[in-house]
């Protein structure tokens, strides 16, 4: 079955990113297809490359990045939400005139239409948030 997942909270502040990661891993383990994972609201912070948690803690952003690489996942960060919160990939940073960028590998930045398209194209849409 084909799934779209929406994540509305950033990592660490709320359990929703942990829950969504575990849910996505279980989906893939059972042979389901993840059409898209869409990060909205503070959820965009799941795509930051600049997190440095203590050594004995999990690094959620890296876990997404690795899961994406392993399963060729489409991880989409909402551009409007990302712009508000200061999260940018290389192209967007350049466009906005910033020298640095902070998006971890495996994510891409795009519009809200990607969420609606996910809802249309998938058999199930599951939301994680606060």
């Amino acid at each position: 079955m084909k799934f779209t997942i929406m994540i509305n909270e950033g990592p660490y502040q709320h359990q929703s990113a942990d829950s969504a990661l575990q849910f996505c891993r279980s989906l893939l383990a059972q042979g389901h297809e993840i059409f898209r994972v869409f990060f909205y609201h503070d959820g965009v912070n799941n795509g930051s490359s600049l997190s440095v948690p203590p050594a004995d803690d999990r690094l959620i952003q890296k876990e997404w990045s690795e899961l994406s690489k392993e399963h060729d996942l489409d991880l989409v960060i909402c551009i409007a939400a990302a712009q508000r919160r200061g999260l940018m990939d290389k192209d967007e940073a350049k466009r906005q005139g910033f020298e640095s960028n902070n998006m971890i590998e495996g994510f891409r930045i795009s519009g809200l239409g990607q969420l609606i398209e996910g809802g249309i194209e998938s058999d199930r849409t599951v939301v994680f948030g606060d």
Partner: peptide, 30 residues
């Protein structure tokens, strides 16, 4: 498809209402 957007939070105290409205407007284009 039949889409429903469920709003259960007050505006301004958090950004959910505003950003929900942004999704609703985009859905119209589809």
């Amino acid at each position: 498809k039949k889409f429903m957007f469920v709003n259960r939070k007050a505006p301004y105290g958090t950004v959910y209402a505003l950003e929900s409205l942004e999704v609703v407007l985009i859905s119209a284009a589809f």
